[in-house]
Design a protein around this nucleic acid. Structure first.
Lengths: 258, 258
DNA sequence: CATTGCGTTCGATATTGTCGAACACCATTC
DNA sequence: GAATGGTGTTCGACAATATCGAACGCAATG
């Protein structure tokens, strides 16, 4: 683990990633304060990143924002995420069937990242966007993945940072979560019942690769009222079927339990 | 222009951008050959980029590919490109009306970059994808933008690199192109008639911002046979109308000429 | 069991990124 | 219109640190 990392590159990454948490343009001074480097140092970093198209300067106020090169690289990555192109048509069919928003996520580090999203026709939809991150312990998609990882792996992921609480229903006790994962593993789907946002309910199922490892998951997200006793079984069946379909398209050899 | 750029960051950018031209995973050795740096140096750069999620290593063959962080950053940029969200519904309507693929592009450096694409229902569509780049001098979208830039700017853009020829119809003489731009400016739309790919025809129109400067363009791209004398006027009118609509949504105060 | 071809580690060296200070520029203020 | 405060930007000296080559570990190959 004693890797020799190149500081300038790390600093450049720091600068770029600050923009992910700010939502607006930033001045040299603002950036230098946020990364704790001198103005002149930050200026050098910024000018280099700008020169390569990773940042761009607004000529009006001289502030900076993320550049088109990142858009170019990001879309290239998206294009080569083959699970995405495999899943997209299946997700579209599912949205048509359920009339609700469906998400596809990957596990990345200790969080999940949305890589595909198809909104349902209803106006009341969840706030989410492709590329966004969310915690694993309080999302259906996160729990669906956790439930099929090894105990050590789950332990590791849940220990990287404190388990934040978002609503009164968020589980923050590691043992409680691990027990809960068992039942998810048994029934084949995960439910997030207002654990990250009040009023929001999600039904999620895991996606496996050709080696039988979970690598992703999909979920249906909707206001709790819309997922009533009548519709719930339909949604669960639909999500599970779609997840299995995507898994099989990825070369998964298993079958649906029960 | 005598800026002091930080070499390590440039080198890291070199490494990342190599992947845009390769379409596959690369080994340390392959990368080090392509960037002309020693294996150990490249190894350091790669490990740093991997540590930050800009690259990821395939555990099977130890080769590297672009990482999820770039996907995250790229989608963030895409989300904040407001012209994109403004244009998307207008483009969708246009595709429904014309039944052909429509592209939205920005000028970036001396190339255009596709930032939105909506395929038509036909099976024979153009190969393009969001984030891709193309030259300005032989695309409808490129010429539509050039036609509304200043003479000096056009000169500068056309001089950055040699004007490559793709088909027998590609214009590579700067004076010829500049004359051609005049007629585009007069009629309000640009045509690419097999100038980048045999059989491909595009009709493009410029998009202006609130200051009246061209900042983007949209085009309809289709096999030449499908844009016959009967359909052409419809397509031209549709593209021009949509371009003006987007411009107005961006605060443009002008009107359509003639 | 040599051999080849990788990825990776390590230490010495000189390159080069960093900081503080100074400068340029544009507001606003008096 | 001089003075002020807040920017972004430039510059030189110094010390930090990225670089290279050599060596190592580990497969696969013959």
């Amino acid at each position: 683990m004693s890797e020799r990392l190149i500081q300038s590159i790390e600093r450049a990454a720091d600068v770029l990633e600050i923009f992910l948490t700010t939502n607006s343009e930033l001045s040299v001074k603002e950036i230098s304060e946020k990364v704790n480097l001198s103005k002149s140092t930050v200026h050098g970093i910024i000018k280099t990143l700008e020169h390569r198209g990773y940042l761009q300067q607004n000529p009006d106020d001289l502030k900076y924002r993320l550049g088109i090169k990142l858009f170019e690289l990001g879309n290239f990555v998206g294009k080569h995420l083959d699970i995405r192109s495999i899943a997209r048509p299946i997700i579209k069919d599912l949205v048509n069937e359920l009339n609700e928003t469906v998400h596809l996520v990957l596990l990345n580090r200790n969080e999940i990242i949305y890589i595909e999203k198809e909104d349902g026709p209803r106006t009341l939809t969840m706030y989410s966007h492709i590329g966004k991150r969310a915690p694993v312990h309080c999302t259906g998609v996160g729990k669906a993945i956790l439930a099929h990882l090894s105990d050590q792996e789950v332990d590791r992921l849940l220990s990287i940072q404190n388990l934040l609480s978002f609503t009164e229903f968020t589980m923050t006790d590691k043992e409680e979560i691990k027990n809960h994962l068992k039942s998810i593993r048994e029934c084949g789907y995960a439910v997030d019942d207002e654990e990250i946002e009040l009023g929001l309910k999600c039904i999620a199922a895991p996606i496996f690769n050709h080696q039988g490892n979970v690598i992703a998951s999909i979920s249906c997200a909707a206001p709790k009222i819309r997922l009533d006793e009548e519709r719930l079984p339909k949604v669960i069946a639909g999500i599970r079927k779609a997840a299995l379909e995507i898994s099989k398209a990825l070369g998964y050899k298993g079958v649906m339990q029960r």
